[in-house]
Simulated scan of single mutants.
Amino acid sequence: MDKKNALRAGALVAGTTLMMLLMTSPALALTRDDGDDPGNGLSVAETLGLFVLCPLALFAIIAGLVLVLDKSKDRAPKAKSAAGTKV
C-alpha cells in the first residue's frame, strides 16, 4: 500500500510541476510592457556581492549578535556521567 501512495504522490508532484512550467512561459518575458524601463544589468561582481556576500554578512551579523547577547549562564554542555557502569 505504501508503494501505491508513493506513486500517487510522485505523479501528483510531477503533474503539478509540469503544469507550472507550461503556464509560466519564459517567451513572454521578451515582450515589453507599457512603461517598462528595466535599466542597466548587473556585473558578475555586483551579482555575487548582492546575492552571496550580503546574505552571508547578514547571517554572520545576526549569529554574532545572538552569541554576544546570549543571557544564559551555562554555555558549555555538561558531560553526562555513565550511570550504572561498574569498574
Rank of each mutant, 00 (worst) to 15 (best):
M1K: 12
K3R: 11
K4L: 11
A6Q: 15
A6G: 05
A6I: 15
L7K: 13
A9V: 04
A9E: 14
A9I: 03
G10N: 09
G10S: 07
V13I: 15
V13M: 12
A14E: 08
A14C: 07
A14G: 06
A14W: 02
G15T: 02
G15A: 06
T16R: 05
T16D: 10
T16M: 11
T16K: 06
T17I: 13
T17H: 03
T17G: 12
T17Q: 08
T17V: 12
L18A: 15
M19D: 02
M19S: 05
M20W: 01
M20K: 06
L21H: 06
L21D: 05
L21E: 06
L22M: 10
L22Q: 09
L22N: 07
T24N: 14
T24W: 13
T24G: 07
S25H: 05
P26T: 04
A27I: 13
A27Y: 04
L28A: 12
A29W: 11
L30P: 01
T31P: 04
R32Q: 03
R32G: 01
R32C: 00
D33W: 00
D33N: 04
D33F: 00
D34A: 05
D34R: 01
D34V: 00
G35A: 03
G35P: 01
D36W: 02
D36R: 01
D37A: 07
D37V: 08
P38G: 03
G39W: 01
N40Q: 06
G41F: 05
G41M: 05
L42T: 08
S43T: 12
S43M: 03
V44L: 11
V44K: 07
V44A: 11
A45C: 00
E46H: 00
T47I: 00
L48Q: 04
G49H: 00
L50M: 12
F51T: 09
F51Q: 02
V52G: 04
V52S: 07
V52H: 04
V52C: 08
L53W: 05
L53R: 06
L53F: 08
C54D: 03
C54P: 05
C54T: 10
P55C: 04
L56G: 05
L56Q: 08
L56N: 04
A57K: 02
A57L: 08
A57P: 02
A60K: 01
I61M: 12
I61V: 14
I62P: 07
I62L: 15
G64Q: 06
V66L: 15
V66H: 14
L67H: 13
L67F: 15
L67W: 11
V68W: 13
V68K: 15
V68R: 15
K71N: 09
K73W: 01
R75S: 02
R75E: 01
R75P: 01
R75V: 02
A76V: 13
A76W: 03
P77M: 03
P77H: 03
K78C: 06
K78T: 08
A79S: 14
A79V: 15
G84R: 04
T85H: 14
T85A: 14
K86Q: 12
V87C: 10
